[in-house]
């Protein structure tokens, strides 16, 4: 027994002390599906940084639900950088004074190194012939999506449908709410997260269509097989942006600002952009986007800023208590 404890202590000491031996370390707090991307990106950056400054750097990753992560950062999790899947999460940190208010201007492209969009995953051969958002509100069609109020992908799905309805001839807020309300009535359940929605659709075979990030389709193929489903691109969808930011308060305290800046800057380098494309996230680099055109079909998109005036307005209007989502579920 004492030997076992000794071993355990050794494991723990190694885990906590050894990192200190690297020249410097950086903690990247991120959302949960970003792990594959950063698992590939981190070694690329480490190599680059070693060549540039001669320092070896230890990169630590933390992944969980996006808003849970920024709450942790506000509560004292010492993240040097945050890489999120929704601007509202970084806005929250800006409101707390941890991140500069104009973080979106500190990096190119709205501080989002890559993008994705919401697409439909349907059963093999598309038996219900679902081509566009309008098909999803037809009676009898079952739509699977994560909880629109409590999850990032759910919110993007909700806004994508809303924006589509708004852009139809004669579309206005009222018709959009009507449209989204019909769509939600076709949802037999609200999954607890993106992954849960996928399991429900793919493994438990519930629903006719799954609304999901384009980038997750590849992950779904890896887990469940490529031939199991078709991807449908609607006529119009939402451009999902993944903002990154330096946590000023932390980097100033730890003296890691230069490193943090370089870590995020390098996301826009050819290597960083190519890594995005290889992880099925649309690179900002036009040349690379053409190179990978086969996996990124052209699709008309709108941003949250364009249609909703930014997350700072979309969130209270739709997802706060009493917002449009709650209104749809009031009994009267």
């Amino acid at each position: 027994m004492p030997r076992l404890i000794q071993k355990l202590v050794l494991v723990l000491v190694t885990a906590w002390v050894l990192p200190a031996l690297a020249d410097s370390s950086l903690l990247n707090v991120s959302y949960d599906v970003a792990r594959d991307f950063y698992k590939d990106y981190n070694p690329i950056f480490q190599k680059y940084w070693k060549a540039r400054s001669g320092e070896s750097v230890e990169l630590k990753q933390s992944h969980a639900g996006s808003s849970k992560q920024v709450r942790a950062v506000a509560d004292g999790l010492e993240a040097d950088v945050v890489t999120m899947n929704q601007a509202s999460d970084v806005d929250f940190l800006a409101g707390k004074g941890l991140v500069t208010k104009d973080y979106a201007k500190k990096f190119p492209n709205n501080a989002s190194p890559y993008t994705s969009t919401m697409v439909f995953i349907v059963r093999k051969g598309n038996p219900r012939a679902l081509q566009d958002w309008a098909d999803l509100i037809k009676p009898g069609v079952q739509v699977i999506l994560p909880h629109p109020k409590n999850t990032g992908n759910g919110r993007y799905s909700y806004l994508a449908a809303w924006g589509y309805a708004l852009r139809q001839p004669g579309g206005n807020d009222k018709s959009a709410q009507e449209f989204v309300s019909k769509l939600l009535r076709n949802a037999p359940l609200f999954a607890s997260g993106g992954r849960d929605a996928t399991t429900t659709f793919m493994q438990r075979k519930i629903g006719d269509v799954l609304v999901s990030f384009e980038s997750e389709a590849e992950l779904i193929a890896r887990e469940f097989g490529k031939g199991e489903f078709d991807i449908i691109y609607p006529s119009l969808s939402i451009l999902t942006e993944f903002p990154v930011a330096i946590v000023d308060k932390v980097v100033d305290k730890k003296g890691t600002r230069k490193l943090a800046q370089a870590y995020l800057d390098y996301l826009w380098s050819k290597e960083g952009q190519e890594n995005a494309a290889q992880n099925f996230l649309r690179p900002r680099d036009a040349e690379l986007l053409r190179k990978y055109a086969a996996q990124f079909p052209a699709i008309k998109t709108f941003t949250v800023d364009e249609v909703f005036g930014g997350w700072a307005r979309a969130t209270p209007a739709h997802f706060r208590d009493g917002g449009t989502f709650d209104q749809i579920y009031q009994s009267k």
């Binding site: 808003s67 849970k68 709450r71 929250f92 909880h147 109020k149 409590n150 999850t151 037999p188 359940l189 609200f190 999954a191 607890s192 849960d196 969130t315 997802f319 706060r320 208590d321 709650d326 579920y329 009994s331």
Partner: peptide, 27 residues
């Protein structure tokens, strides 16, 4: 519970889910 409930408002929404929902709004 959240994995099996379906989480539909007024039908299968448990109180801890509402607590999480508040936290998602930073409330």
């Amino acid at each position: 519970v959240i994995f099996i409930a379906g989480n539909m408002p007024l039908i299968s929404e448990i109180t801890p889910l509402l607590i999480i929902s508040k936290l998602e709004q930073y409330d």
